[in-house]
Deep mutational scan, measured.
Amino acid sequence: MTYKLILNGKTLKGETTTEAVDAATAEKVFKQYANDNGVDGEWTYDDATKAFTVTE
């Protein structure tokens, strides 16, 4: 299944996707991606759209 990450960081904005077996796996991938790019903020998840959002 495809999951999307929407980044609303102070220095990094954009979107990326990942293929994962479930939302928990996608969340781990996205949190590592955000951490690697220096984005740390409030996380939300919308199951209807399979989209995670992180806002700094």
Rank of each mutant, 00 (worst) to 15 (best):
M1K: 13
M1Y: 15
M1N: 14
M1C: 12
M1D: 14
M1E: 12
M1R: 12
T2W: 10
T2S: 07
Y3W: 07
Y3H: 03
Y3K: 01
Y3C: 03
Y3M: 02
K4L: 11
K4G: 03
K4P: 02
K4S: 06
K4A: 05
K4E: 04
L5I: 03
L5W: 02
L5A: 02
L5Q: 01
L5K: 01
L5E: 03
I6Q: 04
I6K: 06
I6N: 05
I6C: 06
L7P: 01
L7G: 02
N8L: 12
N8W: 11
N8R: 11
N8G: 04
N8K: 11
G9C: 13
G9S: 09
G9W: 06
G9F: 14
K10M: 13
K10P: 12
K10W: 13
K10C: 13
K10Q: 12
T11V: 12
T11G: 08
T11H: 14
T11F: 14
T11M: 10
T11N: 13
L12R: 06
L12G: 07
K13C: 10
K13L: 07
K13H: 10
K13F: 10
K13P: 05
K13I: 09
K13R: 11
K13A: 07
G14H: 12
G14P: 05
G14M: 14
E15C: 13
E15D: 05
E15A: 07
E15W: 13
T16P: 03
T16V: 15
T16M: 15
T16W: 15
T16A: 10
T17I: 09
T17H: 10
T17F: 14
T17V: 08
T17W: 14
T17Q: 10
T17Y: 15
T18G: 03
T18L: 13
T18V: 14
T18Y: 13
T18Q: 05
T18I: 15
E19F: 15
E19T: 14
E19H: 13
E19M: 14
A20Y: 02
A20W: 02
V21T: 13
V21C: 08
V21H: 12
V21D: 10
V21Y: 12
V21G: 09
D22P: 00
D22N: 09
D22F: 03
D22T: 05
D22R: 02
A23W: 14
A23M: 11
A23R: 13
A23V: 12
A23E: 07
A24D: 10
A24I: 11
A24M: 11
A24V: 10
A24R: 09
A24P: 09
T25K: 05
T25V: 07
T25W: 06
T25R: 06
A26K: 00
A26R: 00
A26H: 00
A26G: 02
A26E: 00
A26T: 00
E27V: 06
E27H: 11
E27A: 09
E27K: 09
E27M: 14
E27Q: 11
E27G: 06
K28M: 13
K28Y: 08
K28N: 07
K28D: 06
V29M: 09
V29S: 06
V29G: 04
V29F: 15
V29P: 01
V29T: 11
F30C: 02
F30H: 00
F30W: 01
F30R: 00
F30T: 00
K31Q: 08
K31M: 09
K31I: 07
K31L: 09
K31V: 06
K31Y: 05
Q32D: 09
Q32P: 02
Y33R: 03
Y33L: 06
Y33P: 00
Y33I: 07
A34M: 07
A34F: 03
A34D: 00
A34S: 05
A34T: 06
A34P: 01
N35L: 15
N35E: 15
N35P: 01
N35C: 12
N35D: 10
N35Y: 15
N35A: 15
D36Y: 07
D36T: 08
D36I: 11
D36E: 13
D36N: 08
N37C: 13
N37D: 02
N37K: 14
N37V: 15
N37G: 04
G38K: 07
G38T: 04
G38I: 04
G38W: 05
G38C: 08
G38H: 09
V39I: 15
V39Y: 07
D40I: 14
G41A: 02
G41H: 02
W43H: 00
W43G: 00
T44N: 08
T44C: 05
T44G: 06
T44I: 09
Y45F: 06
Y45H: 01
Y45Q: 00
Y45N: 00
Y45M: 01
Y45S: 01
D46K: 03
D46A: 04
D46G: 02
D47Q: 10
D47M: 07
D47L: 06
D47A: 14
D47G: 08
D47S: 12
D47H: 11
D47P: 15
D47N: 09
D47E: 14
A48K: 12
A48G: 09
A48R: 11
A48N: 12
A48D: 13
T49M: 11
T49S: 12
T49C: 06
K50Q: 11
K50I: 02
K50P: 02
K50G: 05
K50T: 04
A51D: 03
A51P: 00
A51M: 13
A51L: 14
A51S: 15
A51V: 15
F52V: 01
F52Q: 01
F52S: 01
F52T: 00
F52R: 00
T53M: 10
T53L: 06
T53K: 05
T53Q: 06
T53I: 07
T53N: 04
T53F: 07
T53R: 05
V54E: 00
V54D: 00
V54W: 04
V54K: 00
V54H: 01
T55G: 04
T55K: 06
T55Y: 08
T55E: 07
T55D: 06
T55S: 09
E56P: 06
E56V: 09
E56F: 10
E56G: 06
